[in-house]
């Protein structure tokens, strides 16, 4: 009976987690890759995340916003204060109203949020054939199996099977729900030139930008992992002590 129960519990749990995968509909499962941030001691590979930021900035940012990130957040990726200022200053943001009651443009400062490519969602749709490029701040958490999915999607464009119809304006990608995606293949080999000399293959860029996007979605992951390790270690010792005390206290009851 008890073995039966365990089997039932296991089945229940696996069913719960399986639902995440099927929720996205008809699509191929994204292959698992190894990531610097996975596992209980995972941290973000700073070099990859910085390269990923470059890919975002030079490729994705043409259509996709990351509106929950501020330029100052880039300090977490290892950029210096001066570098962050320089990056921010490349963008013009709207501020105001000034003393004349007018809105005005000024260079962004580190405290500003990342400038979005479009003024609003309607403008974004209008410029993209009716499809809305989603904000990417949380995309790595907003898709099941986020990191693997993003990498698979970005590097997964290919010719459709002969019997698979892809309408005009859509593209075949087996990892996307329904396998037809409005986004044209965003990454081409050597689309960016990495300062550190890394070869900018599609696979490499997909890996880097995924690392960047995971960081964008879960910037406190490293704090969480390290605090968790300390907390659990502490709790194990404390619980052990409580158990010893419990044994002592109860010794005279039995």
């Amino acid at each position: 009976m008890r073995k039966f129960m365990f089997a039932a519990v296991a089945a229940f749990l696996s069913g719960t987690f399986a639902l995440a995968a099927q929720a996205a509909g008809e699509q191929d499962p994204a292959p698992s890759r190894s990531w610097s941030f996975s596992g209980p001691f995972g941290t973000y590979d700073r070099a990859a995340a910085q390269r990923g930021f470059q890919v975002y900035k030079e490729v994705c940012a043409a259509c996709h916003s990351v509106k929950y990130l501020a330029y100052r957040n880039l300090r977490d990726l290892g950029f210096s204060e001066a570098e962050v200022k320089a990056i921010a200053a490349q963008y013009e943001v709207t501020d105001g109203p000034n003393d004349d009651g007018e809105m005005f443009q000024r260079p962004a400062v580190p405290a500003d949020r990342f400038k979005s490519p479009f003024a609003n969602d309607k403008a974004a749709r209008a410029a993209n054939g009716g499809a809305l490029p989603p904000d990417l701040s949380l995309i790595a958490k907003a898709r099941p199996n986020g990191a693997n999915y993003l990498h698979a999607l970005l590097s997964g464009y290919r010719e459709p099977p002969a019997d698979f119809a892809v309408p005009e304006g859509l593209h075949y990608n087996p990892y996307f729900a329904g396998k037809r995606i409005a986004m044209a293949p965003p990454l081409n080999a050597d689309a960016v030139t990495y300062a550190d000399g890394t070869q900018a293959s599609v696979d490499q860029m997909a890996h880097d930008v995924t690392t960047f996007l995971m960081w964008a979605a879960e910037p406190k992951l490293e704090d969480r992992h390290s605090l968790g390790f300390k907390v659990i270690l502490f709790l194990i010792v404390l619980t052990g002590l409580f158990y010893a005390v419990k044994r002592k206290v109860w010794a005279d009851v039995h």
Binding site: F17, A20, A23, P40, P134, L138, K141, A142, R143, P144, G146, A217, R224, H225, L227, G228, F229, V231, I232, L235, I236, L238, T239, F242, Y243, V245, K246
Partner: peptide
């Protein structure tokens, strides 16, 4: 207290290492 310690270890596992496993990805949209 002993039971609480054991339970908090269980809680901490979810909290620190799988904080989104019990939630749904769509709620980040």
């Amino acid at each position: 207290l002993f039971g609480l310690g054991v339970f908090f270890i269980f809680f901490a596992f979810w909290l620190f290492y799988a904080p989104n496993a019990l939630g749904h990805p769509d709620n980040y949209i």
